[in-house]
Design a protein around this nucleic acid. Structure first.
Length: 420
RNA sequence: GUGGCUGUAGCUCAGUUGGUUAGAGCGCUGGUUUGUGGCACCAGAGGUCGUGGGUUCAAAACCCAUCAGCCACCCCA
């Protein structure tokens, strides 16, 4: 293993990458704030039980993808593979039930030991929102609307589709699950090995199998509609009606299933066809049973998580930060003066770059390379007179400006340039 | 975890049926005289050919292993 290689499935975010990354999370945060959500941060690691209990002990995430280890005190710790469980844990730890309903959003790294692919990393970043303590369908609608608004802000509205399904309440789901298991048991021999395995862990997944043989069997499987009780049907109808009221287009996908055990009722996913197998770009649902699974009081919740890297790949590349200014001192005295000058300009709110060495030509070249709007040329002669030559890098023109008031002058010049 | 494709300078890639000092474009450095970038021209630096074995007189090219990326499955954001 090459020591200078990053760990498999991780990568560095260099300025260009990071700008994309930031553009996505900033846009999402700004939108979430407008929906009344506030940012929180939970620890990157939790006691393993937080995830074991909530994600279901048969899910792939828990059984083979968690980064778990014993710490020096002997506690079993896990690097968070997702953040909903952590947010719920925080909700209970901090007694936030008093303030319910509570609206939170988060952004940060998650860890899953998966086989890397484009848009699938071992350390990846999610942005997500959670609405806790709201059992009403309005909650589902709001949360989806917020997701849709973010897609729109990122310019992805026409490049993603919202897929929607209901998993019903736990009574409906248990009944359906039992019926499905019974049905598939009868056809066990014809099922693919993978689906045989799924039968024990997550039978709903078989419905979405890509295996030819499975599909034939699935065609005759009982349909969820027959098992959805009135309450669940009404709830789903309310969600759909709300989305229609808001003009949010969606496609019903009865095969849309959640991988994690805590979901019920609404399940949704914004998907794209532009990222290969990694189609889901923002996905979530309702998780009314989660808090109880964790040993707390029954508390309803809805939320979603979005893959920041995936969105960053789809969204337009943001422009680099504008308006940097380059200082070009000539000679030792000027060099010393430049130190102060740079500081002053920075306090005036300008972005300042300067090469620490090199002849004028080299420094001018650098000024050009970093995209400076202006070069502030400071030589011995200017120094005595308390002025600098300010060169407009785009126009090529140059004028003399007094060092006092250089900051405001540069800002004015940049502003004029930006508008003109 | 399963199957497949790929791996040559900082980047994108070329490298004929294994055969002398491994190439290009971009980028980088320096120069085209003195305190002025972009353009052009000239010159230059930079490569353990992913890594480790093996076959061969000879391997970047063939074989094996390993690591990494990518694709599909799987899983999911």
């Amino acid at each position: 293993m090459a020591a200078l290689q990053p760990v498999r499935g991780t990568h560095d975010l260099l300025p260009d990458d990071f700008r994309r990354h930031r553009a996505v999370s900033d846009a999402a945060a700004e939108t979430a704030l407008r929906y009344g959500y506030e940012q929180i941060a939970t620890p990157i690691f939790e006691f393993s039980a937080v995830f074991n209990r909530t994600l279901g002990d048969t899910s792939d995430i828990v059984t083979k993808e968690m980064y778990s280890f014993d710490d020096r005190g002997g506690d079993n710790i896990t690097l968070r593979p997702e953040n909903t469980a952590g947010v719920c844990r925080a909700f209970m730890s901090n007694g936030l039930a008093q303030q319910a309903p509570v609206r939170h959003f988060y952004a940060g790294p998650m860890f899953r030991y998966e086989r890397p692919q484009k848009g699938r990393l071992r350390q990846f970043h999610q942005f997500g929102i959670e609405l806790i303590g709201a059992p009403q369908a309005q909650g589902d609608i709001e949360v989806i609307a917020c997701g849709a608004a973010i897609m729109e802000t990122l310019g992805l509205k026409d490049r993603v589709t919202l897929e929607l399904n209901t998993l019903g309440d736990s009574a409906s789901r248990d009944a359906y699950r039992a019926a499905l298991v019974a049905y598939f048991q009868d056809h066990l021999a014809a099922l693919s090995d993978e689906s045989k395995d799924r039968l024990g862990r997550n039978p709903l997944r078989i419905l979405d199998s890509k295996d030819e043989g499975d599909r034939r069997i699935v065609a005759g499987a009982p349909s969820f509609d027959e098992y959805l009780n009135t309450e669940s049907q009404e709830f789903f109808a309310a969600v759909r009606e709300g989305l229609e009221t808001l003009g949010i287009a969606y496609a019903l996908n009865p095969k849309l299933v959640r991988g994690l055990d805590y979901y019920c009722h609404t399940a949704f996913e914004f998907t794209t066809t532009e990222l290969g197998a990694q189609a889901a770009v923002l996905a979530g649902g309702r998780y009314d049973g989660l808090m109880e699974m964790m040993g707390g009081p029954a508390t309803p919740g809805v939320g979603w998580a979005a893959g920041i890297e995936r969105l960053a790949m789809l969204a337009d590349s943001p422009a680099p930060p504008p308006g940097i200014v380059a200082i070009v001192p000539l000679g030792e005295a000027a060099e010393r003066r430049a130190l102060q000058l740079a500081e002053t300009l920075r306090r005036d709110g300008l972005r300042v770059d300067w090469a620490f060495s090199g002849a004028m030509k080299k420094r001018m070249k650098r000024a050009d390379k970093v995209g400076a709007t202006h070069a502030v040329i400071l030589g011995d002669e200017e120094l005595v007179r308390g002025v600098a030559q300010v060169k407009d890098m785009a126009q090529g023109g140059q004028s003399e400006v007094a060092l006092d008031g250089l900051g405001p002058a540069l800002k004015a010049a940049q502003a004029a340039r930006a508008t003109g």
